[in-house]
Every structure is written in C-alpha cells, then in structure tokens.
Nucleic acid binder design. Structure first.
Lengths: 143, 143
DNA sequence: CTTGACCCTATAGTAACTATAGACATTATT
DNA sequence: AATAATGTCTATAGTTACTATAGGGTCAAG
C-alpha cells in the first residue's frame, strides 16, 4: 500500500509517517517505480504499535526503546514493567499538580465579586498580589 | 535595578525577561550609559503579575490580554471571570483525560505477568494489540 | 591592569510535529 | 490522447515558550 492508505488505516498522518521514518521509528520502505513508498502489513503493525504507545501518552524516545525491545526481545522484560510504572507515576504527578492548580484557580475565581468595575475586579487584584500563594512554589504551573 | 536583580527578585530568568520585552509583555526599560537595562519597582510589579499568571498555568497570549486590561481597565470585568472559568474548564478536561490515561496504563501494567520472557511479555503483547482499547478514541493521549 | 561577574545582540536549538513550496506520478474525466 | 484532479516526493521553514550559544562590551575589586 502507499502512504495515504497506511495513513488512513493507522490514523497517523502521512507527514507524520515520513517524520517517523526520518527519526528511525519506522524503517525506510521499498519504493515503487515512481519513487512512492510501498508498505506491507508489517509496517502497519509497527505503526499501530507506535500509535498505541502514543495513545498511552508515550513519547518518541520511550517508544523508540520499546521498539528496540520489540525487534529483539531480551530474556528479562522487567524494565518494560518499570517503564510503565514510571509512566504511571509521572501521570500521577501531573494530575496532582493540575488539582493543585485548579484549587488556586477556583480561589481566584471567587475573588471576582462581580462589581463589574475594572480597577476593583477582585481577580485582577488577586493577580497583582503575588504573595497570596506564598506557601506554594514560585514557578510556572505545568500544563 | 539591573536585569540580574530583577531576575532574582521576580524568580524569572534574565533571558526570559528579555524575551518578554521582545514579545511586548514588558515595556522596553531605560538604559544606563553602558546600555544596561534599568528597571524600577513598577517593572517588578508587572513582572510579578506575569509570573503570578504563569503560576496559574496561563500562557503568554492569555497573559497579554490580562495585561491589556491591567493597563486600561474597562468598566466590565466579566470577561476576566470568563477567562478564568474557561481556564478551569480546560484544567478539568486535562485532569479527566489523565485519569483516563492512568486507567489504561494500569490495565497495561497488569498485563505483565512477570514471566520475564521477552516475547511473552504481556505488556508488549498488549501494546501489539491495538484493538484492546477499541472503544476509546484512536488518537495520542495529551500530556 | 587584569580577573571575574555581569550585561549586550543576534542567531540557532529544543520537541514533536505541521505547513509550505515546487516538482513529479498516478488516476479519472473528457 | 489531452487534461484535470489527486497523491506523492523532497527540502525547508514555522509552531510554542523559551533556552543555549557565540562573540563581544561594561563594571567593580584586587
């Protein structure tokens, strides 16, 4: 199949497929007479694997390692489990930090008394007074 | 004060301060004889405001709008409250999507029976079978 | 008077793609 | 067969919000 069909079947855009080839996640496929990329079912499997990893929030470096393992499975798969564990822990941290952020935002939201007068807007006043969250770390919230 | 002190006092790196000036978030300050940027307390206030917004997970475009309002408060501050509301809703979506992702990852994690044999690793098998999450959207999880 | 810390500009690099330009190949229609 | 529409090719630049680097100037202390 050509790249368009692979894209449709995998749900991955054609440009991204070429990008993955460039990055070494996908092998360079055969070419047709007209220099078109020609893919087989194995390529679809591999791309599906990649997309599945992406659906799990994994990024190219992590996926690259998993592909290496997939290509050449070693005896011990402990580190695969560890990788997933680390990933879960990471997601936990993100959730916690977003919950924390949400609390701050809700407090901020409450500051608006609805006076509808620019200068007096409680939200603006709160944003002006940075010491209000003195107990929290003074660094940008991760989104 | 010079940029270094402003950086220390605000917790924002000097390079980032210059970047914000370039982007129009901060006004171009006076210069010393030796062409050094010279800041006053108002600059610190403004930068603190910006950092406070960042602590609330806001991004430059949003911050830019708030600064406009700060510079020229209009009668009606409703949209400030709306902006915060939208921001909270966005955080909610992110949290929900991460919770969902976590569930998937935990299911994935359970697939590892600990056989410690590469080809048989349940995690790898699960990643190979993309149809396992057929009911979920087939797109990358946002992190 | 030189060392070191600080500051300046301009440019390039980051992640993980996405968009664009300009050209060639294939397929469908007339 | 000619033409038009679509698909594909490469290479390059753009995206966000910065960060890093190169190559130089300024300032205070010893």
């Amino acid at each position: 199949m050509k790249i368009g069909e692979l894209a449709k079947r995998s749900g991955c855009k054609a440009v991204t497929i070429r990008y993955y080839e460039n990055e070494g996640l996908l092998p360079a496929p055969e070419r047709s007479e007209g220099n078109y990329r020609l893919y087989g079912p194995k390529d679809l499997d591999r791309l599906d694997f990649i997309m599945h990893c992406r659906e799990h929030g994994m990024r190219p470096p992590e996926i690259r390692e998993l592909l290496l393992f997939r290509d050449k499975p070693q005896r011990d798969c402990t580190w695969v489990a560890n990788l997933v564990d680390a990933h879960i822990a990471d997601v936990d941290v993100r959730i916690a930090s977003l919950e924390h952020l949400k609390k701050h935002l809700e407090r901020l939201r409450c500051a608006c008394g609805g006076e509808r007068e620019g200068e007096a807007c409680g939200i603006m006043r709160s944003l002006d007074d940075r010491s209000c969250c003195a107990s929290c770390e003074r660094q940008p919230a991760a989104l």
